[in-house]
Design a protein around this nucleic acid. Structure first.
Length: 256
DNA sequence: ATGGCTATCACGGATAGA
C-alpha cells in the first residue's frame, strides 16, 4: 500500500500536474494540502475518473486539505479537535484498509513572535494530543502532510538562512520532536538515515536549480505502521515541471 | 537582501506562503 503526501499549492492551478503524477505514481492513498478552494469547488470528477474517493475539507482562497483513496474511506473526520474557534481548514482524517490516515497542513507561523506563531505552537500542541489519542487506540496510523517544520540542520541546504524562522525555531522543533518521542517515526528519515533530501524549494532565487531546499513534508508512522514500512521516497519529478508546486510528493510503501 | 515568485480574489494591489 502506497501512502503519499503533497502540498499542491492550489489544486485548480495544479490540476494537470497532479493528475499526471497520480497516474504514474499510483498511490493508494494521498493527503493533499493547500488545495486553496472551497469543498464544493474541488475538481471532484477528475479525481474520481482516476478511481479515487475523496474526503475534502476546503475553504476559500487559503489552506484546504483533502484525503484521496483508491479504497473506501471509513469514519471520515474533518478539523483538528481542541479549538472550536479555529476556522482554518487544515486537518482531515479517515481510515483506509485499517490504517487511520491523518492529513495535515500545519500553520507556517511566520513571522515569529506574533499571534501567527502562537497559533502554530498551539496547533502543534493540539496535534500532539490527537496523536496521543490515536496511540491509545493501538491501531496503525500515519500523520502525513506539510508540517512546516525543518526537523534538523541537515534537513536544510542552508540552515543558517532559517535561523529565527518559524519553521526552524527551537520551540517549533521541540514540539515536532515531542511527536517522535511519543513513538511516531519520521518515515523518510528512518529509511534514509544518512541521506540528504528536500521536499520544498522556494519559487524565488533559483532555489530549485541550486537545490536550495528544505525538508518539511513528513509522514509520521505509528509504531504499528512503522513495523510495516518498506520504502519512503521523495519524488522530485513534479517539482521540475512547468507550473510546479513549490513542494514535491513524499511517498511511503507499507506492507499489507 | 527590504523574500527579487506564485496563487487568490478580483481586475489593482493586498495578503499569504516559507
Amino acid at each position: 500500500m502506497r501512502i503519499a503526501t503533497w502540498n499542491v499549492n492550489s489544486v485548480k492551478a495544479r490540476l494537470s500536474n497532479v493528475l499526471d503524477w497520480l497516474r504514474s505514481a499510483e498511490p493508494d492513498v494521498a493527503v493533499l494540502q493547500e488545495i486553496k478552494c472551497e469543498t464544493e469547488a474541488f475538481p471532484r470528477f477528475e479525481f474520481e475518473a482516476l478511481g479515487y474517493r475523496l474526503l475534502v475539507h476546503g475553504q476559500k482562497s487559503y489552506n484546504g486539505v483533502a484525503l484521496i483513496s483508491k479504497h473506501p474511506i471509513e469514519d471520515p473526520m474533518t478539523g483538528l479537535e481542541g479549538d472550536d474557534g479555529d476556522a482554518q481548514a487544515r486537518y482531515v482524517e479517515g481510515t483506509v484498509k485499517g490504517v487511520r490516515v491523518c492529513g495535515l497542513y500545519l500553520p507556517n507561523g511566520n513571522p515569529a513572535g506574533t499571534e501567527k506563531y502562537d497559533y502554530k505552537l498551539a496547533w502543534m500542541d493540539r496535534l500532539h494530543r490527537r496523536a496521543g489519542t490515536l496511540l491509545a487506540a493501538g491501531r496503525p496510523f500515519v500523520m502525513g502532510g506539510d508540517f512546516n517544520v525543518i526537523p534538523e540542520e541537515r534537513d536544510a541546504a542552508d540552515p543558517h538562512a532559517w535561523v529565527g524562522d518559524a519553521l526552524f525555531l527551537l520551540e517549533t522543533r521541540r514540539r515536532y520532536r515531542a511527536l517522535t518521542h511519543l513513538g511516531l517515526t519520521d518515515s523518510w528519515r528512518a529509511l534514509n538515515p544518512t541521506a540528504t533530501g528536500y521536499s520544498f524549494w522556494d519559487y524565488q532565487g533559483q532555489a530549485w536549480q541550486a537545490d536550495n531546499g528544505i525538508r518539511i513534508d513528513h509522514l509520521l508512522a505509528s509504531p504499528e505502521l512503522a513495523d510495516r514500512l518498506e520504502t519512503c521516497v521523495i519524488d522530485r519529478e513534479p517539482r521540475g515541471r512547468d507550473k510546479a508546486s513549490d513542494h514535491t510528493p513524499v511517498v511511503a510503501t507499507v506492507s499489507e
